[in-house]
Simulated scan of single mutants.
Amino acid sequence: MAPITSAITRVLVTGFGPFGGVPDNPSWGIASRLPSALPSNIELLVHPSYVPVSYHPTLDLVPTFHDQSPDIALHIGVAAGRKYFAVEQTSQKSGYEWVPGVDGEIFTKEEQQAAWGPLPEKYSTSLDLHATVARWKELTSGLSFSERGSGARAKPVDVRFSDELPDMLANFTTQGQSVTTQDDEVKWSDAVGTYLCGFIYYASMAEMGKRNTGEQRNVAFLHVPSLDTEEQIKVGVDVTVALIQALVEVKGST
């Protein structure tokens, strides 16, 4: 697939801040190290600070992201129980009343109804993630994942603030050590969860759909594993850059 070289593509990128068990969130570590531009006329609009792991501040921020009129929005979060990078297909508008954010607040059923009442229970991105992942695999084939060492070496996690509770509980022992192994380093997924990762994904797709003719939701969510060292974060930056390039190429070819 040939890279897009004519029009400028504006890609918004965000990362999350610390939460229980994750004092240095690698999603913000990656986002904050991205350049302002990439080859093939890609302009990166990196939000200048991390998104707090709290529902109400996040909901307030989402419209400001889209005030910049990005062609693609990419939100990044951590899934500490995984050893791979994954783009998520769908998110849902309900279920955020169970696990509080770092401020101790939930997003109640009544608030969910007030914010998104008439909208579908699930939103799926308008981006072709299957084609994107195929291209992403090509672009990352030369990267050295060995620099991650054991990869997503898990820290003890407070499950009250876990990013995706079913996934975390499945992938962790009671001592908080990862017991999962994965063959693929980059992949498609449909398990964004109902914590802040799913919340920002749904809110961002709803906001972009509201603003665009035909309700195009050119939004993606990237889950990254725990990355503990500067070398691992650098690998995460390279993987994310490759994903952005793949998203732009695939979008431009459709």
Results as ranks from 00 to 15, higher is better:
S146I: 08
S204Q: 08
S141T: 12
F199E: 09
T240A: 00
S144I: 07
S126F: 05
S226K: 06
V237K: 02
D184T: 08
K155C: 05
V239E: 01
G198I: 06
S150Y: 08
V224Y: 01
R217F: 01
S144T: 12
V159M: 15
S189M: 02
D183Y: 12
N212K: 14
L169S: 09
W188F: 15
S162Y: 03
L139T: 08
F172E: 02
S189T: 00
D167Q: 11
Q175T: 15
G142P: 08
D183L: 14
S126P: 07
S226A: 14
F161N: 01
L247K: 06
I244T: 10
D163K: 03
V224Q: 00
V224D: 05
L165C: 04
A220L: 07
V157I: 15
S226N: 13
A154F: 03
K155P: 04
P166V: 09
V239M: 03
G198K: 01
V186N: 04
N171W: 01
S146W: 06
D158L: 03
Q245V: 13
W188K: 04
D167T: 12
D184S: 13
Q232E: 15
F161Q: 11
D238G: 09
T181F: 12
Y201D: 03
E207N: 09
P120R: 07
P118Q: 11
G198P: 07
Q232P: 04
S204N: 11
V157P: 00
L196N: 00
S146Y: 05
K155D: 14
R148I: 13
S189C: 07
N171Y: 05
H223S: 08
D238Y: 11
V186A: 00
G236T: 05
P156Q: 08
V241L: 14
T173W: 01
K137W: 06
R217T: 04
P120N: 09
P118R: 11
S141A: 15
L247A: 08
A206Y: 04
S124Q: 13
T194F: 02
T180P: 00
A246T: 10
G193I: 00
L222V: 06
E147Y: 13
E230I: 10
V241R: 13
S178F: 01
R217A: 02
E207P: 03
P120K: 06
V157K: 08
A170T: 12
T181D: 12
E138I: 11
V237H: 01
S162M: 10
Q216H: 14
